[in-house]
Simulated assay, not measured.
Amino acid sequence: MPANKKYLTPSPAQRFAKISAAILGGLIVAVMFHMALASWFDHVTVIITSTFSAFILWAVLMVVAFLGKNGWKIWGIYLLASLVLGAIFYFGNQTNPIV
């Protein structure tokens, strides 16, 4: 049974934005989240835990990317989230340097 046409994204640019945000953007946010956690908490424990939790977070972010109406807004949200997480990672490394 084919999908209802009114629920499909008509624009190829929007389709590309959603797919790339789901795969690349979700992966970047998931990795940056775990890097930010590792800079503030025990990095060995976070890295071991991230083997499973990063995949689960990535899958959730992939679904969220396809729920949005505009793929470029999803990209913006994911890039903003990764920049915030990158700042948390940076300040975490400045405060708690790994020897």
Results as ranks from 00 to 15, higher is better:
79 L>H: 01
84 V>M: 11
33 F>M: 11
77 I>M: 13
64 V>D: 02
11 S>K: 07
99 V>Q: 09
49 T>A: 13
36 A>H: 03
22 A>Y: 04
4 N>R: 09
50 S>M: 14
55 F>E: 08
77 I>Y: 08
50 S>A: 15
32 M>L: 15
26 G>T: 13
74 I>T: 12
79 L>G: 00
30 A>T: 12
62 M>R: 08
38 A>S: 14
93 N>Q: 12
91 F>R: 03
18 K>V: 02
16 F>P: 01
93 N>I: 03
50 S>C: 14
13 A>Y: 06
22 A>W: 04
75 W>C: 00
80 L>C: 14
74 I>W: 02
51 T>L: 14
6 K>D: 04
95 T>W: 06
91 F>M: 08
41 F>Y: 14
66 F>A: 07
45 T>F: 10
25 G>Y: 01
92 G>K: 06
23 I>Q: 03
2 P>C: 09
53 S>N: 06
56 I>P: 03
4 N>C: 07
60 V>P: 07
62 M>G: 09
73 K>H: 10
88 I>A: 03
23 I>E: 06
95 T>C: 00
96 N>Q: 01
86 G>N: 02
90 Y>H: 11
8 L>V: 12
17 A>G: 05
87 A>E: 07
93 N>E: 08
28 I>N: 07
10 P>F: 07
80 L>W: 12
58 W>E: 05
57 L>Q: 04
54 A>F: 05
54 A>P: 00
60 V>W: 05
65 A>L: 08
17 A>N: 00
5 K>E: 11
81 A>R: 01
16 F>T: 09
30 A>H: 00
93 N>T: 09
1 M>S: 15
99 V>T: 12
68 G>A: 15
48 I>R: 14
84 V>R: 00
31 V>W: 10
79 L>M: 13
27 L>T: 06
11 S>M: 04
63 V>L: 11
61 L>D: 02
43 H>V: 14
8 L>G: 05
68 G>P: 00
